[in-house]
Design a protein around this nucleic acid. Structure first.
Lengths: 197, 197
DNA sequence: GTCTATATGGAGATAGAC
DNA sequence: GTCTATCTCCATATAGAC
């Protein structure tokens, strides 16, 4: 579908640039406060040119979300090749990578909170459902291997890990010195599972 | 300081009314999108009258936060009269009360996320520090009574409970059917402590 | 595809009458 | 204390030239 060359190539690149800029601005300023002007400035365009590509600010947001959900899904999805006993460690590595990347973290904390209030894009529920499901698969594999603690079931382990992760990220953004996201996740995974971390 | 009667009595009441309305609107719509017009409409006033009382929208937000932090502090603060073994149950009761009161929940999820991006009011760091401290005191009392699980320390238990709570509330707001805040907290408290719940 | 110019709307804030 | 009227600013979006 997407041409590698030809007349649409530059356009596709432009859209990519705009998506990235928009994600960054929305992450920093939220949806409402993040203006087309800000986004346009980052890609050295006029706001009206953004609208030429995406039609409306709302549509741009949806495109950003769809794009991010896509990427996150592949990043989080349970990989059968990872042995269950290494799943917790893999999660922690992912958390460590995120920790060095505040911009990426911010997008969801900010937009999620805003989406609660505004018109809820289904995208959000979808993303959350996908993430929970990905975690559930991982914990289910651990359960099969007998690596979960007594009384811990995969679905609720997944929900609590996800909630703790998001909550800790948000708290970290508010007060970086007071919260250690990776440490909290490690402690939580120690309680949920019997693997040593 | 505050008069029970006299010329300032009605004014104090008005300020209360406005604070409550502002808290509700900010919780629903966020700070930026929550307009003075919306708030004014709830108390049947003109936006300019709000500004007469609080000077600016920003000042109104600060007043709302100060008020809420005040109330929350008293609600969450560790009460010496509660025996440590009943602390987890007391937390769950508080969570249950909050669960029936989405408006109250929303204020912080929304504003916290927004504050990350915007100018950070110190109020937020303060509120978080206070809350973490309150939880830490509760868990410390439990630790003294030997009710925490092996390897769980009060400070990190407090941080993880707080993060999980906020995260779960946010997730619940996004998809109420998919998340049970109280159940997640109960499961978490079971892992942190040795009391039965 | 990108720009300039413009339409339109809503926000927060101020001045001043009552 | 509350209102009306007004100011100023900045947003999204559109029209049309290049």
């Amino acid at each position: 579908m997407t041409e590698k060359r030809g007349p649409y190539r530059r356009t596709a690149e432009r859209r990519r640039e705009i998506l990235d800029a928009a994600a960054a601005v929305f992450a920093e300023s939220g949806y409402r406060a993040g203006s087309l002007k800000d986004i346009a400035a980052r890609v050295s365009l006029d706001p009206s040119s953004l609208l030429h590509h995406f039609g409306s600010k709302r549509a741009l947001l949806e495109a950003v979300l769809a794009d991010k959900i896509d990427r996150d899904a592949t990043a989080l999805h349970w990989d059968d090749r990872v042995p269950p006993e290494q799943y917790p460690a893999a999660l922690l590595r992912l958390a460590e990578r995120n920790a060095g990347n505040p911009g990426g973290i911010g997008l969801y904390s900010v937009l999620a909170a805003e989406s609660i209030t505004t018109e809820h894009p289904d995208s959000f529920r979808d993303r959350h459902a996908q993430t929970r499901e990905a975690f559930t698969e991982g914990f289910a594999a651990m359960a099969d291997a007998g690596l979960l603690r007594e009384g811990v079931d995969p679905a609720s382990a997944a929900a609590s890990l996800f909630a703790l992760w998001d909550g800790a990220q948000t708290h970290w953004l508010i007060d970086p010195d007071a919260v250690d996201v990776v440490a909290l996740l490690r402690a939580h995974l120690r309680l949920l599972t019997t693997v040593s971390l």
